[in-house]
Design a protein around this nucleic acid. Structure first.
Lengths: 252, 252
DNA sequence: TTCTCGCATTGACACAGATCAAAGGGGCAC
DNA sequence: GTGCCCCTTTGATCTGTGTCAATGCGAGAA
């Protein structure tokens, strides 16, 4: 019981948690994508086991030495960066099959914090060994590059959102993005549970929590969604999507 | 003469432009970083030559098939993404020694536009061959990963800027970033020429061009910088830096 | 040289979203 | 089960930045 009380103790690796990529139902979303059986077995052999995190625990913090990247096996994470003066910016939310920690490669130290938003499990992928293996397995190498590139493209999307969209567009884009990602994992794309607070959504979207709350209420008033605390149901997907087009519907 | 008139004709590769990495004064900033002589020669042999662009020409456009990444040899670029409805967001400005095009790896197509903001030259680095070589040269592989990771970290910085900073902080951060990058290339870190318009700065910073202009004027009024059109001189670097700390100077 | 056009500056005003404030409501710990 | 605290909602007001508009300046063309 009381071993779980202190949530900030970094848990040790749990070798018993190890599950082979080949047995993992996320393999089509995750790093092993496109590997044949023998290559997947080789990837399996380097994955250092799993790690369980309770809600609120840090997977890593800015400044931690970089050794591994992580694949989310289950649960939900946020990453954030903070300035010296205490302001922080949520840079992303990660769900099953997504890769965390690539920010650390450039300086050998992590540059952001990764926090579990619910009880979660990750696979540890030691990076030096991954590089070694990927120099032998071309498809693994190429897929790793794709995963990193995808992160860059995703970031560009967030810049677009932060730089050009108004509050309701941002929230609509956020909900549609979650919807699509849940859907890709076999969950409903119209009904889901938000793992993050209004404040965290706001930080991600460059808005204050009150603005996020008001936008949710407005969407509900207009029959686009129903929302009750963290439970969201999308009632009118097409109209929600149409919010991303500007009022005049002009074509460039 | 008139061959230069149509700026949108995509120029062919100019094999005569090829300059060996080993002869390039940017090699410490660019991809060859950390390679020994023999490995650098191997990298040289795959670089497909250079390409010259006039001001205003596209290096690539969103949707173009991805084949190469590019190293800026000289000049200045911007990258931007645009929504269906015509709004666009500048995602970065690239100068000598920086790498362009990594957004294209994930989908095999470029996802943004890259435009020369002045007459420029780039080195073409065919990506498939780069992967092949990097699987043989470990330090090249690792450095490529660092370059991609650095791009991710940079993007997080932009998100921070867009999500949490006010107009004058954004502009200060922008100027300090340029200052630092010019300095790293041996140019003055207090006096430089902006290659982009107020509108492009505004797009990058999530501001309207009038707001950028007003912020420049305010900085000048307060003796932080002197600015005349595109020519900027930083007069009080420490005070400019102090703008990035919040008014109350609180420590987190 | 002069003309021109795109870029930049500056002012007045409007408005989206921030801020400040107060009151519910629900989930988690005990 | 019960109680507390955090999260959320909603209202009133304020303000930074956007919008609209006019003028100014400078680089490049002829």
């Amino acid at each position: 019981m009381h071993a779980n009380v202190k949530q900030n103790v970094v848990p040790l690796i749990t070798p018993g948690l190890k599950v082979a990529c080949s047995q993992c139902n996320l393999r089509e979303l995750c790093l092993p994508f496109g590997l044949d059986d023998t290559d997947m077995a080789r990837l399996d052999s380097l994955i250092g086991g799993g790690r369980k995190l309770k809600r609120g625990q840090h997977l890593y913090r800015a400044g931690d030495p970089f050794e591994s990247i992580f694949a989310v096996r289950s649960g939900f994470f946020k990453t954030d960066v903070l300035t010296e003066d205490g302001r922080d910016q949520v840079t992303g939310f990660q769900m099953a099959g997504e890769i965390l920690g690539m920010d650390g490669i450039s300086t050998e130290h992590h540059t952001c914090n990764a926090v579990a938003l619910e009880d979660s499990e990750v696979c540890l992928i030691p990076f030096t060994e991954l590089e070694l293996l990927s120099s032998e397995i071309h498809s693994l190498q190429h897929h790793l590059h794709k995963v990193m590139s995808r992160e860059i493209v995703r970031d560009h999307g967030v810049m677009m959102l932060l730089g050009t969209m108004r509050a309701e567009e941002r929230l609509a884009a956020f909900l549609l993005n979650l919807s699509q990602r849940f859907s890709a994992r076999g969950y409903s794309h119209t009904e889901f549970h938000l793992r993050m607070t209004r404040e965290e959504i706001g930080s991600y979207l460059g808005l204050k929590l009150e603005t996020v709350s008001r936008a949710f209420s407005r969407f509900q008033d207009e029959g686009l969604i129903s929302v009750q605390q963290k439970h969201v149901r999308i009632l009118d997907l097409p109209r929600l999507k149409s919010l991303l087009a500007p009022p005049d519907g002009r074509i460039a």
